[in-house]
Amino acid sequence: MQTPEKNKVAGQRQWSRRQWIQTSGALIAGAPYIARSQSAPIRVAATFANSGVEKPNGQGLFQGAQACFNAINRAGGINGRQVELVMADDEFNPAKAKENALKFASDAGVVALLHPQGTRQTTEVMNAVRTVPIVGPNSGTTALHKRGANNVFWVRTNYDVELERLVRFADTLNLKQIALVYPNDPFGLSVLDGFNAALARRNIKAVGVASTPGTASLEVGPAAKALAAVPAQVLIMSLVGTLPAFHEAYRAAGGTAISFALSLGGSAPNLAAMAKQPERPIFSVIVPPPNAERFELARKYRADMRASNFSGDSLVSLEGYADARVLAEGIRRAGARVDRDSVTAGLESMSDFDLGGLRIRYGKDAREGNTYTDIVTVAQNGQILS
């Protein structure tokens, strides 16, 4: 005869067996969901200009990133999962960029944002999105780089570094009569600050400074005429899509200075247009030239672009490719559970990552991963010469 205590123990054992069966059934039923979550594509998103005057740069960034992820997917993905790149056209409009970024951020399946394009656009995205990792904003504005946003991982060098390189190069050649053209917007004003600082370090005073109404404005004539009237030996053009139009107007107005340009002006259409002009600018770059054989990054980029049937190698698409390679490594280091926090931790762990000739160095309090810069020019056939 069982005592009440024995009945109680037996009931507990029976309940435990039932509970185990129910729990096991739930786990088995949930197994397909777990498998699906581990095999579902890893989604990353990009907002950029897919229309308007800055479309060539936007398409370059996107194609470079897509070529990278296509190559990764052909090789089996990251930890067995494919990567899906989702895009949205912001028309180079800051408000639209913010709207796109917020939509992406509201989708829990998007684990990171890739290279927002433009200073004002990057500012809006950074202000609006604080919990999603943002990799490789297409802006070198130093104030943004130094803001200390923990979720933003910079791949491109800031404008101060580029301007220092250009001014140092001019000074080395004993060319001290230096002028600047810049757009009257946050991007241009950041460049103006860096330009003045680089000159001040050498006790050089600018012989001329002029601005266009904005980055996307083709109203370049007044600035071109103003700068053609000053005795400049070197003219630094901090313009993007409007660079060829300004350069042509400057020469037509009688300007004779040697032309320098920042990396953002080095899109494929710009280089093709500049190659046709008698005097071709010298560019600062923040990635190696696409044809630089000594860089593994450039070799892999060219192969992956061809495999994706993308033609027209460019500095801009190589930058997009580099951004995607950095993000892919952060995702790989995130491990089996890929979410925003794990990707952030993965990126942060890249204290000395070799990107194929470029070193990316992040850390707990380090978000400016790259300080590479060089000087190139363009040949008559459009080829970049370093």
Rank of each mutant, 00 (worst) to 15 (best):
L318K: 06
A198C: 10
G214N: 13
G194F: 05
L327S: 10
F48M: 15
L189G: 06
N381V: 02
I134F: 07
R302Q: 15
P4S: 08
L358W: 07
M274W: 01
E319Q: 13
A223G: 05
V191S: 08
Q121I: 11
N50M: 15
Q233P: 04
A206C: 00
N381W: 02
V191R: 06
L163A: 07
A105Y: 00
P41Y: 07
D323K: 05
N381C: 09
R280A: 08
K276P: 03
V111A: 11
M126D: 09
P137H: 08
Q19A: 15
A252M: 03
S351V: 15
S16F: 15
V207F: 03
D339Q: 07
L218K: 05
R165L: 13
P288E: 11
K6G: 03
P4M: 15
K205Y: 01
G254Y: 07
A105Q: 11
N151P: 13
A253G: 07
I258W: 05
G356H: 14
Q233C: 05
G58Q: 04
R120Y: 00
P278M: 08
R130G: 05
M237A: 15
G266Y: 03
Y301H: 01
L85F: 14
V181W: 01
G60H: 08
E99F: 12
L271Y: 08
T47Q: 12
P222C: 03
Q14H: 03
G208C: 07
G254D: 05
A49I: 04
L358D: 05
F169G: 00
S139P: 05
